[in-house]
Each structure stands twice: as C-alpha cells, then as structure tokens.
Design a protein around this nucleic acid. Sequence first.
DNA 1: GCCCGCCGGCAAATTGCTTTGACACGCCCT
DNA 2: AGGGCGTGTCAAAGCAATTTGCCGGCGGGC
Lengths: 354, 354
Amino acid sequence: MTNPDNRRRGGKAVAITVRQIAETASVSVGTVSHVLNGSARVTEPRRRRVMEAIRKLGYQPSELARGLRRNFTAMLGMIIPDITNPFFPGIVRGAEDIACQSGYRLVLCNSDNDEAKELSYLNDLRSFRPSGLLIIPSGSVSDSLSHPDANIVFVDRCPAEWKGDFVTADNEGGAYQVGRHLLALGHRHLGVITGPLSVTSAADRLRGFRRALAEMDMTIGSEYIQEARFNSESGYSAALRLLQMLPRPTAIFAANDLLACGALAAAQHLRLRCPEDLSVAGFDNLEFVEHTAPALTTVHQSGYQIGATACRLLLERIADRNKPPVRLVLPTELKVRNSTGPPPEARGRRAAAE
Amino acid sequence: MTNPDNRRRGGKAVAITVRQIAETASVSVGTVSHVLNGSARVTEPRRRRVMEAIRKLGYQPSELARGLRRNFTAMLGMIIPDITNPFFPGIVRGAEDIACQSGYRLVLCNSDNDEAKELSYLNDLRSFRPSGLLIIPSGSVSDSLSHPDANIVFVDRCPAEWKGDFVTADNEGGAYQVGRHLLALGHRHLGVITGPLSVTSAADRLRGFRRALAEMDMTIGSEYIQEARFNSESGYSAALRLLQMLPRPTAIFAANDLLACGALAAAQHLRLRCPEDLSVAGFDNLEFVEHTAPALTTVHQSGYQIGATACRLLLERIADRNKPPVRLVLPTELKVRNSTGPPPEARGRRAAAE
DNA sequence: GCCCGCCGGCAAATTGCTTTGACACGCCCT
DNA sequence: AGGGCGTGTCAAAGCAATTTGCCGGCGGGC
C-alpha cells in the first residue's frame, strides 16, 4: 500500500506529486495534468482512475510548480495603507470574498502610508507572479506604469497618471452633501479637517465641500483647513487648532470618521457641547459611529462594495487583458445623525422666537 | 545592449532570470545563486560583477522557482475568522510587522467562522509551501494535527488537542476582573452575553467571570447566560432577551466590545439609562469604545502584541523545529469607564444617605 | 480491403532557481 | 620541486508541474 516514493527524504516530508498519482492510476503524468486542467480530452475510465487516485492519496497540486510553469499563480496581491483603519478591512473583506469564490487567494500587505514600503512590497509581490494586484496607493507608484505586465486595479485612491481600471466611492459628491447640510443648518463659520492632500480621496472630499460653499458664494480661509493624517489622534489635535481660532467655527467637517472622533474628543476636552456648541460631520460611516456620543453625522460609503467591485473588475481584466479600462464611482449617501445641528446663534434666535 | 533572451515569448513578457544575470556578469548561474544566498564564498570582483548586473537589469528572483526548489517560500499563511471584527486587524498588523521585518510576506484568509472554509484554506495555503502558519481557529482543525509537517502557531484561541505553540491574552483573568468589579459595585443580578462557547477564548472568559462569582458564593442561572456570535447585532438581541427577564439583571458582562455595543443599543431601545439603570462591561478595549455613549468599561488586550508575539514565536519555530513548544498568555487589564456604576437600589440608598 | 485522418495517451522538454559533485588552481609544507 | 589541501567556480541534476510533439490504433470513406 505504501508507495516507495512517499517517504521522507533528507529528513523532511515530501508531498504527493503528480508522478505518484500517475503511477497509482496507471497513466502518465501528462494525463493527470490534463484531467486536472481539462486541457485535453481524457476517456472516462482513465479519468475516473485518476480522480480516484487523487482522492485516495489526498493529492494537492503544488501551486509553486504550477505557477513556475505557467508564469502566474492563483493568487492576487493587495496593498493597503493600514489594516487597523477600520475602513480598509471592509474593502479587503469584499475583495477576498470575490477572490476566494473564483479560487484565488489574497495576499495582503500594509504599506503603512509609506511610499517606499509600498514600492518594495509591489516588487516582492511580483516575484510570486500573482494573477493580479489590487492597490490602495499611498504614493504615486509611478513604477507600476513602467511595468505594465501585471493586471492592476487601483482602489479608493487613484494615482494621477493612472489611466487603467479604478474603483472608488463618490468622495466629491459625499462631501458636497455634507457642505450643503451644514450650510442649510445655518452654519457660516466652518472648519475642515482634511486627510493628506496627496491622497486623491482626501483632495476630492475637500473639493466637494468647497463646491457646496461656492454655490453660496462662500469661501473658506486656508487657516480653517487643517491637514491631518487619517487617524483620531491627528483629528484631535487638528480640531484643537481649529477651535482656538477666532471666530471659532461652529461646524467641523472631518474627512473621515476617525478624524471626526478625534474632533468629538477635542470638543469634549474644551467643554463644548456637540451639537449645541459645535457640529461635527465625518466620512465613511464606520459601523461604530452610530454608537458614539453623540451619534455621528457622516457620509456612508460601502467598503465591502468597493472591494468586491474592484476584485470583480480585476478578474475581468485577467480574463481579457485587452478590454477597455473601467473607472467606477460608487454612490455615497449622507447619514444625518445627532452630531450636527443649528449653530448657537440660530439656536438662540429660534429659542427666542418660540 | 538588448540581451537576446530578454524578449517576449508567446506574446507575454518574460522576466529577467539568473541565466541573464550570469551571462551579463560572465559567471555561471550557480555563482549568481551563491551571491544571492551567501551559500558559498565568492571572490570580491565576481561578486561585484554580479551585483552590478542585478542592479542594472533590475533582477528580482522568482519566489516560485526558489520555493519549488527549497520546498518552502518566504511567506507565512494566516487564517483569521473575520477581518471586519476590529479586534483581528490589530493582530494581523502585529504579525505582519514582524513578518515583514524578517523578509516574510503574510497571506491572509477569512475563515468566516466556518470550519469547512477554514480547512479548505488550510489546504490551499499549504500548496504554496509557506514557511509557517498563524491560525486563529474557528473549529477544531483536527486535520492540522495529522499533518505536523508545517510550522504552526495558534493565536487567540486554542484547539483542545493542540499541544504546540500558542499565544493568547489572559481571557480568564480579565473576565475575573470584570466580575470582581461588578460585584464590588454591588450588583447581584448579573447577565452574561458570551461568545460561541466552542471558541476557547469565549469559554475562558465565562469561566473567569464565574470564578469571581464563586468567590462570593454566588452562581448564575443558565438563563442569564446568553450565547451569541461575536458581533453587535447578536449582542443586541441577546441583551434584549436578558433585559426582559425578571428579575432584570442590573449589569451585563458582554464577552467582547461588539457585543457590548449591541447591549448598549438594546438598553437605549428599552429606554434604560446606562449606567444608572444598567451597567455594561465589554472585552477587548477596541479603540473606539472610549467614544461610545457612555464610554465603555472593558478589559484591555493588545491585539498588536498578540499578533507580534505569535509571529515572533513562529519565526523561532521556523529557525528551530525541535525547540520545546511555547504557550504564552499576555496580560489583560480592566479599564473602568462610565458604562458601569452601582445598581439602582444601591444608588437610591446612597442618594438617600446624602 | 486499403489508406488516410483523427483521437487519446505518453515521453520529453521546459520553467527559474538551488545544490551538489567534480575540477582546476594556487599555496604551503616537506 | 612535488604532493597534498583548501578554495573558488562551474556544469548538471533535480524540484513539480505544464505543454508539445509524436505515435499507435481505430474508424470511416473510397
């Protein structure tokens, strides 16, 4: 019963190979390969013998050997800025679900918002010959353009030079909605905490917000726009800076929910009530912001959908390298909750009128 | 200048290979390999010629070919239950940082708390011949024991039969602290929302909580222990069930922060004030629970540390397959915030006394 | 009844890299 | 000066798959 080949060599276990399957099924290795890949017709009795042998020996083909020969593997590389930012796991999850459904595996790397790290990962990932790459860029990734050999879909953010497949949410439109909302409430002194402006999504959000202002013939002083990194600590200190200015803004638009959380904390620290003294709006609609104090007004975007869509696009790109590039913008939606309300003066007036 | 080998074949680009490096540097391919791996001494002039050629041609060795030959690759597999549970990304991040520092890449899979999916991923991952595996198990993964060929570290949860390397936080101790805290506040009617009891960490937490009760010669009725899945919706409905019982519990210990969030929402839905009418405590200390309304009392455990430690252990295991297994329990710490307070009756008494 | 063509299967070449055994060269010691 | 010995280099043999070229046998058409 024990196959002489199925033993230990050099002290380490050797896996089952096609050769053993071939012997067990009394066929050639080529035939086994054809059965596995449907790359040629194999008559039924042989086919069944092979399948049986595979089942019996618990054979699992080596992705390495297969990849080496075919020059690509059943894996997709994905580079994200930071897995601990709760927005990205949603994207990853969406992408992974789609990838796994099609028999692909996802390899994940954190670029840590560092362009050098990103580039290094990009190269490392390539040495595994993945079928494709999903990239949420931190830098310009200019290199990827000089190596157009890989299938790449950019996600959430888009390098300026990139003309290929791309999926994002409607950052500009969502931010525009926030602007309209705050203006409609009567706010005239506005502050913005933006993400790093080198990141396209952050820039788009700022632009959308400004568009809402422009429609009311308003502008916003550059000192009222604070650039921050996409985390709550950074949002906290940016909010402190804004709230010490005169006139003090009555509303703050934070470019994502983490920044908004930091802003809430800053307001609390300064004993400003939200939304009575200060309105705060965020972006992303992370799951937990319904439970913050107060519940956060924010723009909903579905990370899962973004990831799933991007991955679907990538699979299509893999299937047909020559189809025209697709650039998708998924809808966003303003969720008004309790962290935004009329500014103090309007509130006072309204209270007086009642 | 153009190397004749460096052209397209069959329509697709062919990467630079050792062979081309060898030709360019006028050495044999074996020598190139030795330079790359330091597997034999190479005289300085040759070594420099090789390095120069590598730099000039932008050579990147194929991990596939290398892995095929050596029977392992510079990658680590990781299986986690669900990346969208914010506790896990911290672990992943910790593991990834350590892995990348040592030149390894992390491949991630979501088992979705599904044992079958977990097993399937385990096998797929194996076909890439990773140097090791980090697993947060959803099921018993009994299979992994019959294939002790891989280096495996279990993380956060431990299958009953597993006697190898393992890292977790002090779930039992943390839950014990919560129990002591709630009892010290005067609570006598307690409810527990536990995670799936097949998951060892959930069982440990319940045990720790019970130990605190036992020290006061108390027990808890089984109807006051509601088993739930580790997400907030499940926590919401479990809390509703608890809060409709008579006598109504005055405090709820939720086995993780997501469940606790659900419990807070349920309390709010029933117009119960927290902590005046109901105390809620969680577990994990996710970043955002400082900002919930009210700020959540919870047990801190560092996902990052768990992940980093587990990965370090795995690297050590890879370096020496024969060293004795290590089982680590990282400390946890109770964080008392505003979601816990004295029960209504004590509060009434205290108010009357003042 | 014979020949041609097609189908199914096999053996061998290929993929990029590591590793090993052999070999050549130079140095030191006798 | 000659014989070891150590050192550095190379060529070739894998690793586990896919893929290609070829061949034998069988069926159909003339």
